[in-house]
Amino acid sequence: MSNGVLAPLRRRLSRTFAGQSEGVPEWELALEKGDDAGYFPPDSVTWRVHGGMTPIVGGIRALLTQALNPGVLAGVVDHSYYREDPLARLARTIRWVFTVTYGDTAAAHRACEHVRRRHDAVVGQYTDGLGEAREYSANDPELLAWVHLAFTDAFLGAYEYVRGPLAPGLADQYVREWATAGELMGVAEPPRSLAELREQLTAYDDGARLAHSPRLDEVVGFLRRLPLDPLLVPGYRTLFAAAIDSMSDRHIELLGLNRQAVRHGLLPARQGAQVTLAVVGLALGSPGPSEEAARRRLARLGVL
């Protein structure tokens, strides 16, 4: 495809992901600054999994997985403006993930502290899966742990769904590497292997901590039909279907969905995602601005 054909798509994608249709956001350019190589080197599995376009599917899957926890869901519904500004949370999530991945250690700490400060005001009550009223705080260790599990599972799962399985041992390495991000966010015992990740995910499904509810239906329905620029809607629906298709049967069941009901387009979900992400990659270019800024910092420090 020519640049002329891709230009309208590039502008709309940039506005969706970065909040501006032209240029590179200042926070991405700032990743060039810093005094060390950061927590994750260029040859890390974290750079591999978070690079490219698969984090788009991973982000959708992470939001859906997080919402299975009624405490996390209550925080989103009660304290965010997801209906009025549906892309703001996505943009903040992207900024946090890429800053921790590509920034120096000081930038990673600042990003995590910023999120934790925002969480201070996110408190309230919710009803758990057993019908019991419970207090919640976004900085509660149990909720922080679920969010970390959801991120780790989603980004790794999306990468392997779209790109194919990692070589033996690399999935374990990714979980072990990304445990650092969990610790920076205050997670006490993040998983350090794929087996531990799956074990901790399963442990949350105890009848109380994960649950289906009318409130979940509302949020999932909104995410399924996100009010995007019309040019982006077909691609997003394809990627939403892929995010669902990549999830475990149990999590799909808890969401109240099924793979066939959300399928979009003529291609099977995986192939549809591969084609869609390839077009997005052509429009946005690769590597992305965050990785390029990190590489400039690493070159200045003599790491590369």
Rank of each mutant, 00 (worst) to 15 (best):
residue 187 V to Y: 07
residue 86 P to M: 03
residue 30 A to L: 03
residue 52 G to I: 00
residue 270 R to H: 07
residue 178 W to E: 12
residue 76 V to C: 00
residue 23 G to T: 06
residue 280 V to A: 14
residue 49 V to Y: 01
residue 273 A to Y: 02
residue 196 E to T: 06
residue 277 L to P: 03
residue 245 D to S: 09
residue 79 H to L: 01
residue 233 V to M: 04
residue 170 L to H: 11
residue 247 M to P: 04
residue 148 H to E: 03
residue 295 R to H: 07
residue 170 L to G: 03
residue 106 A to W: 04
residue 36 D to F: 09
residue 223 L to E: 06
residue 116 R to M: 09
residue 1 M to L: 15
residue 9 L to W: 02
residue 123 V to D: 00
residue 200 Q to S: 12
residue 262 V to L: 12
residue 202 T to L: 08
residue 73 L to E: 07
residue 228 L to F: 04
residue 295 R to D: 10
residue 113 E to V: 13
residue 196 E to R: 15
residue 304 L to K: 12
residue 227 P to K: 00
residue 166 L to Y: 05
residue 144 L to I: 00
residue 273 A to T: 05
residue 39 Y to A: 09
residue 226 L to H: 06
residue 45 V to K: 00
residue 32 E to K: 13
residue 40 F to Q: 04
residue 296 R to G: 01
residue 55 P to M: 01
residue 140 D to P: 00
residue 179 A to Y: 03
residue 168 P to R: 08
residue 171 A to H: 07
residue 128 D to I: 05
residue 296 R to L: 13
residue 152 T to K: 01
residue 251 H to Y: 12
residue 104 D to Q: 10
residue 266 L to P: 13
residue 31 L to F: 08
residue 129 G to R: 09
residue 267 L to M: 10
residue 189 E to M: 09
residue 210 L to H: 03
residue 293 A to T: 08
residue 219 V to N: 06
residue 53 M to D: 12
residue 137 S to G: 13
residue 284 L to P: 10
residue 48 R to P: 00
residue 267 L to D: 08
residue 54 T to F: 06
residue 58 G to F: 01
residue 162 V to K: 02
